[in-house]
Design a protein around this nucleic acid. Sequence first.
DNA 1: GTGAAAGCGCTAACAA
DNA 2: TTGTTAGCGCTTTCAC
Lengths: 372, 372
Amino acid sequence: MTEASGPGGPPSPQAGRPAPRVRLVDVAREAGLSKTTVSAALNDTGRLSPEVRERARETARRMGYRPNATARHLRAGRARLIGYVVGELADAPWTFLESPYFARLTGATAASALGRGYAMVLLPAGSLQSEWAALPLDAVVVADPVADDRIVEDLVAARIPVFSDRSVEGLPEAHWVDVDATAAVHRTLDHFAAQGARRPALVVPDSTTRFHREVFAAHHDWCAAHGLPELSVRAAEPGNGPVVRAVETALTAGPERPDALFVVAEASPPLLLEAARRHGYDVPGDLLLACVSEDETALHTQPPVTTLSLRPDAVAEAGIELLVAVLEHGQRETGGVLVPVRLDVRASSVRNPGTSGAAARSQSPNTSAPPT
Amino acid sequence: MTEASGPGGPPSPQAGRPAPRVRLVDVAREAGLSKTTVSAALNDTGRLSPEVRERARETARRMGYRPNATARHLRAGRARLIGYVVGELADAPWTFLESPYFARLTGATAASALGRGYAMVLLPAGSLQSEWAALPLDAVVVADPVADDRIVEDLVAARIPVFSDRSVEGLPEAHWVDVDATAAVHRTLDHFAAQGARRPALVVPDSTTRFHREVFAAHHDWCAAHGLPELSVRAAEPGNGPVVRAVETALTAGPERPDALFVVAEASPPLLLEAARRHGYDVPGDLLLACVSEDETALHTQPPVTTLSLRPDAVAEAGIELLVAVLEHGQRETGGVLVPVRLDVRASSVRNPGTSGAAARSQSPNTSAPPT
DNA sequence: GTGAAAGCGCTAACAA
DNA sequence: TTGTTAGCGCTTTCAC
């Protein structure tokens, strides 16, 4: 129990019924002041004598006064509430949280928002007008919209500012933050090549997300530029089942076996390792393995798995910063923000087992091993 | 683009600046009616002639009118907004989303709430007064509070209704929904015993969550009642690293090796399997394995891992139902709700490999294999 | 069947 | 330095 419920608390503390909430006017009357004065005292505005200010505050505290946020918001013209929705996975509207990437992006967005004074409400993937129409949203963050996403269209039509990835570039009241997918692919494939891989394969879900389309294109370009065969398999959907099946196809389908595998999908790293072994591969002996993942299980396998982090925390941070700039300072001219990825090289993609430590990490400048 | 931005839309559609929002009074003026009438028409209340009702609606639609939710909420006296916070893992306030259990609980709570017209805002684990004080919360859901949780105390002091687990029983304005932890432990250990296990070991995090304490106590009781040794190891924290280490301790520490292992912590099933193998166990030959998990990777390992589901969806559903009953119908007398668990028996805990299918599943009445 | 007016709780002009 | 008053946008008696 805290002070608020102590003696001198709200009227009739032990009354059984709802007990009406203390309003500003109640505090004012009790303190023998006006609403204005009490309001100014609590908000630290206006010119008040120290004694009066203190008296007002003390009375408010004693009475357990808590300002009515809704009334403040009505007055202020905005509710400091933002929506968060993902475009992908609309057929199972809440599964996105089970993906380590979206889990982190979601948490980091909520955290950044709260840090700037905005609350974040969770909306189902692919959500409909009817699900958010009644909410006083100041803006909506749309993570990974699919091509021609209805959510984005509806938000624009409702004139609610949208914060999303680069696919919304050019739309009115839409702003973007994106990850550098091309750099992600190139860096990983360069790393494979540096380790001597000649037949790197790619597994990517068959989605219309900007990220996945860019990955696919970047892979194509890289293979062409390096004169290497373009080995890729598209998983029917994200999710462990389909991705593992796609991996198995990639590992067994061709006439020659691949010597490196880059999985650009949220699949459990231990599961990928197990799948490779099931098909007779030694990692990293026969197959270099890397995957795009925020899943910390990658650290706990034998060998640990190389991952490419999409930096959800940085993306969220940049997105909320942009949001606040737009909402509060009316910023309009923004080219958007591009966040760099991070390759964490681990033993699963390093040929020479003897140098898996410091030597392997020097592979990339912004590579680092998380401090477990 | 939808109709709202078509011809006849809001005033000056292509004006570069903010463009003030259409209010009820604007619609009323445009339609030559009063605010009252338009409001009644849009909310389907009052006695209006069909023509007038239609005219009001049509005008509103044409002008792209969207009611101001904040004003409605102020009028209504509540914001239809609930908070969601977890008590555990307060030292890393957002990691809870990375646990499949909390990810599902969170999503399911948001979904149920939205279905009943409430938006859910995400709060950091162990959050402070200052983080939610400015939000117009009608209630807060506190998942798995730790013993004497500050959040619960603060909410009670602020007189915000709390919905949590059974540990809040008896507090004013607090209501509970819980999972039957004792049944969970007993059912799993009974299953092990039926498979011939004589030395089942338990791994559980060292937390003060009601669930974990109840699990520990239930294990103690069960072992005593069955005259079997009480083998248990407490992981320093939840999370894959500490739990895997605790598992390794459980598998190697004693003079005799355990013949079954029940992991009551969110660890990745493939990782558990790998750990067991690393220490020379064949699963299920030498060791029956089961874990409390909502992680679908359990289905994709060889052998698939037996899991005990804490039914986060059912818990969320029951919790929101209770919340709505309390908030909207003033329900006060409630004993709380106890949700049953579900044991999904799979090959990892079945001795006879030949009967891993139907025979194994008949082990428990409400067991079922998810329809992947 | 329709409209005028009060008021939800707060903040900020403007007066005193 | 402090108080009076208007008004944010909406719903809802209560007259007409």
